[in-house]
Amino acid sequence: MAQMTMIQAITDALRIELERDENVLVFGEDVGKNGGVFRATDGLQKQFGEHRVFDTPLAESAIGGLAIGLALQGFRPVPEIQFFGFLFEVMDSIAGQMSRMRYRTGNTEQAPITIRSPFGGGVQTPEMHADSLEGLMAQTPGVKVVIPSTPYDAKGLLISAIRDNDPVIFLEHMKLYRSFRQEVPEGEYTIELGKADVKREGKDVTIIAYGAMVHSSLKAAEELEKQNISAEVIDLRTVSPLDVETIINSVKKTNRAVVVQEAQRQAGVAANVVAEIQERAILHLEAPVLRVTAPDTVYPFAAVENEWLPDAKDIVAKVLEVIHF
């Protein structure tokens, strides 16, 4: 066991998969010599050579297209999109092409591609470098969308994503890259995609979150504890497909729920969770299911992003609303 940050856990997972399967290829802008702008691929080109870990010209649409072509030759591409705000450049490759590969070819071809990308906010980047676009991905049939919240999960989920035979969008919250360390086992282990994790048991209310908001939710739960409110916290870990079973089981126990996302409110992952709850457990509910989200604006200018992002205080306030409904 070693103490690792999330970024180290990610590098570790990539190293293990590059070692284990010669079909795994890692590429993207600055991932070679530079080891990625966040250093996620640090040392990998040196260890595995320029044929396995390589820089690309500066073109996200081409990175996506290249991955698809390599997949058709039996490779298992793990491209990096330098920041997920550049999703729009690679959107056709994801939503128009790789997500449809299996379906379109009548289940004769597949696209076992894992696109890794930093996302989320709160780290004072220039425009388009911070965003929560997972909702766009979750609305795309044919791709899985995985978002780890801890170093341990990041490693296990990334290994599973790379081994998965369908396209996975693996989103790494920038604020979590180096914010804390955790015991991470050496060697390989996997965490099943599509499975949520109950981070904290509780009986009065269920808080459902993912990414950095898991930590804000845990903080809120501690705050609520002081007010004698026992909150259960669920980390979705995969936002598409949703682990409906874990969510519903919890809500049936607590009868109240708040869904938290860092993203804007409109048409997001949280809305989807709320819909699943009311369709499957409405008679168990003592209060409407409420959402904690950012407002429906463009991701804000850096100087005001901390006020824009939801935080533990907002979560506590919403929980109190459903408790006192």
Binding site: R265, Q266, P295, D296, T297, V298, P300, F301, A303, V304, E307, W308
Partner: peptide, 20 residues
């Protein structure tokens, strides 16, 4: 003056829809 989230909300559309 510091910018405010409320100001930025007003920049979203010429006329704000009810949700905004």
């Amino acid at each position: 003056p510091k910018q405010k989230v409320s100001e930025l909300i007003e920049f979203m559309f010429e006329e704000l829809p009810p949700t905004l």
